[in-house]
Simulated scan of single mutants.
Amino acid sequence: MTLHLRPIHFTDAPFAYPDGHVARLAGGLQWFAAYEVIEPAARRIVAVADIAQLGARAATLHARITAPRAPWVLGERTLRFDQPQVAAILNVTPDSFSDGGAHVDDPAGAASAGMAMAAAGAALIDVGGESTRPGAALVWEEDEARRVAPVVERLARAGALASVDTRKAAVMEAALSAGAAIVNDLSALLWDERALAIVARSGAPVILMHSPDPKAGGHGRPGYRDVVTEVFDWLEARVDAVVAAGVDRTRIMVDPGIGFGKSLADNLALLNGLALLHGLGCPLMLGASRKRLIGALDHEAPVAARLGGSVALAIAGAQAGVQVLRVHDVPETVQALRVWRGLRDRALSATS
Rank of each mutant, 00 (worst) to 15 (best):
P94M: 06
G121V: 12
T132A: 15
A88D: 10
A118Q: 15
M115F: 09
D106H: 00
T93K: 00
F97W: 14
D99K: 01
D105F: 00
G100E: 09
D126E: 14
G114Q: 05
H103I: 01
S112W: 05
A122Y: 13
A113C: 07
A116V: 07
A102D: 04
P94V: 06
T93A: 03
P94Y: 03
G100W: 05
D126G: 09
G128T: 07
M115Q: 13
A113R: 03
A120R: 04
S98D: 07
G109N: 01
A119E: 15
I125G: 10
A122K: 11
G128N: 08
A116P: 07
G114T: 05
A108M: 04
A108I: 10
V127D: 08
L124N: 11
G129D: 03
S98P: 03
G114L: 04
S96A: 15
P94K: 06
A108R: 10
A102F: 00
I89V: 15
G128F: 07
S131A: 15
S96E: 06
A88L: 12
S112H: 15
F97K: 14
G128W: 05
H103C: 02
T93V: 05
I125F: 10
T93F: 04
A88N: 11
V104P: 01
E130M: 14
T93Q: 03
L124C: 12
A119Y: 09
G114P: 04
S98E: 06
S131V: 11
A119V: 14
I125V: 15
I89C: 12
L90Y: 00
V104M: 01
A110G: 04
E130N: 09
D99V: 02
A108N: 05
G121I: 12
T132R: 13
I89P: 10
M117Y: 04
G100Y: 07
L90M: 05
D99R: 02
D95M: 08
G121D: 10
D106S: 00
A120K: 06
D105H: 01
A110E: 02
A110L: 04
V92K: 01
M117C: 07
P107G: 02
T93P: 06
T132F: 11
D105N: 07
D95V: 07
G109V: 04
I125C: 10
L90C: 03
L90G: 00
A122R: 12
T93W: 05
S112G: 09
A111W: 03
G100R: 06
N91C: 09
D99Y: 03
N91K: 04
A110P: 04
G129A: 04
D105I: 00
D95K: 06
G109T: 02
A116T: 13
V104T: 03
A111C: 10
S96G: 14
T132N: 13
F97E: 14
A120H: 05
H103R: 01
A88F: 11
D95C: 09
G121H: 12
A113G: 07
E130S: 14
S96H: 08
P107Y: 02
A120L: 06
V127L: 09
V127A: 08
A102G: 00
N91S: 14
D105V: 01
A111E: 05
A118D: 06
G129Y: 00
T132C: 12
H103D: 00
E130G: 08
A113E: 01
G114K: 04
A123I: 10
N91Q: 11
M117I: 05
S98W: 02
S98N: 10
N91M: 06
D105S: 02
D95E: 14
G121F: 13
G101T: 02
D95A: 09
G129E: 03
A108T: 11
G114I: 03
A118V: 14
